[in-house]
Amino acid sequence: MKYFDELKRSMEYLAGDPRTVFIGQAVAVPGTAMSNTLKDIPGHRLLELPVAEEMQMGMTTGLALAGQIPVSIFPRWNFLLCGLSQLINHLDKVQVMSNGGFKTKAIVRTGIGAERPLHPQHQHVGDYTQAIQAMCSTIEVIRLDEPEDIFPAYQRALLRDDGRSTLLVEYGDYYSEK
């Protein structure tokens, strides 16, 4: 099994649930390596957004509160940094702030930017997994190191019934290397 193939299989699995909606930049149009994992997802399930990461994460929380399962895609950690207020102060804390009255389930997908064959410079290759993990009290952060980690992690994120969201971290270099 290959890293990219497992990601594509996982996205198709998620799309099998009628509650999922895929949102972000380059989800309905090509533009990133992650776009290629969505090319067989029906177009009506893909919500293309402008470059507005804080708005995207706010929409993610809203969709989750409305009972949908957003798969919110930020191609690189460095982009997700712009949505951290919404991630840390809202999505992560909604269950705590509501004394368990609201439970949200969102799937947030991000990546450590590929450095090979061309290094895109440091604003695209950050890995903030440990820092974000330390800031989250309810969101589970999972780093996808090996191809065999991918499908079970996305399956767990979809099937979980504990009212928690999941943030999955991919490696851009592994799309073609593993």
Results as ranks from 00 to 15, higher is better:
Met55Ile: 10
Met97Thr: 11
Ile41Glu: 07
Ala66Tyr: 13
Leu46Cys: 06
Ser98Asn: 11
Tyr174Arg: 12
Arg143Ala: 13
His44Tyr: 14
Leu63Tyr: 11
Ile132Ala: 06
Tyr171Cys: 12
Asn99Asp: 14
Met135Asn: 05
Ser137Glu: 14
Arg116Asp: 11
Cys136Ile: 00
Gly58Pro: 07
Ile139Cys: 01
Met97Asn: 11
Ser165Val: 04
Met59Asp: 07
Glu170Thr: 11
Ala64Val: 03
Ser85Asn: 15
Ser137Gly: 13
Thr138Pro: 05
His44Phe: 12
Ile150Ser: 02
Thr138Asp: 03
Asp162Gly: 12
Ile73Asn: 04
Lys93His: 09
Val125Asp: 03
Ile41Cys: 09
Leu65Glu: 05
Glu54His: 10
Phe74Arg: 01
Tyr154Ser: 01
Leu144Gly: 01
Arg143Asp: 11
Tyr174His: 14
Pro117Met: 05
Asp92Ala: 02
Ile41Lys: 08
Glu48Pro: 00
Arg164His: 13
Ser72Pro: 06
Asp162Ser: 15
Cys82Pro: 00
His90Pro: 05
Phe79His: 10
Met55Glu: 12
Asn99Ile: 02
Gly126Val: 01
Leu167Trp: 07
Ile69Cys: 12
Ile73Pro: 04
Arg76Gly: 03
Ile107Thr: 00
Val125Arg: 05
Ala114Gln: 03
Ile132Thr: 02
Arg164Met: 12
Glu115Arg: 15
His122Ser: 11
Val51His: 10
Glu115Leu: 11
Glu170Pro: 00
Cys136Leu: 09
Leu144Ala: 05
Leu65Val: 15
Ala131Gly: 11
Leu118Tyr: 15
Met57Asp: 05
His124Ser: 07
Phe79Asn: 09
Ala157Pro: 06
Leu49Gln: 08
Ile107Leu: 04
Leu84Arg: 07
Gln68Lys: 13
Leu65Tyr: 07
Cys136Ser: 14
Arg76Asn: 09
Gly100Tyr: 08
Ile88Arg: 10
Phe74Glu: 04
His122Val: 07
Asp173Arg: 11
Thr129His: 03
Arg109Thr: 04
Ala153Asn: 01
Ala157Met: 04
Phe151Trp: 05
Pro70Ala: 07
Val94Met: 15
His124Val: 06
Asp92Pro: 10
Arg116Cys: 08
Val141Ser: 00
Thr110Leu: 02
Leu144Ile: 08
Val71Ala: 01
Thr166Glu: 06
Phe74Cys: 02
Pro120Ala: 12
Gly67Val: 08
Asp145Gly: 14
Ser85His: 13
Met55Trp: 04
Thr104Ala: 15
Gly83Arg: 02
Val141Tyr: 00
Pro117Leu: 08
Gln133Asn: 11
Gly163Thr: 10
Ile139Gln: 01
Tyr174Ser: 10
Ile132Val: 15
Arg45Asn: 06
Asp145His: 12
Leu159Ile: 08
Leu47Cys: 10
Gln123His: 14
Gly100Ala: 13
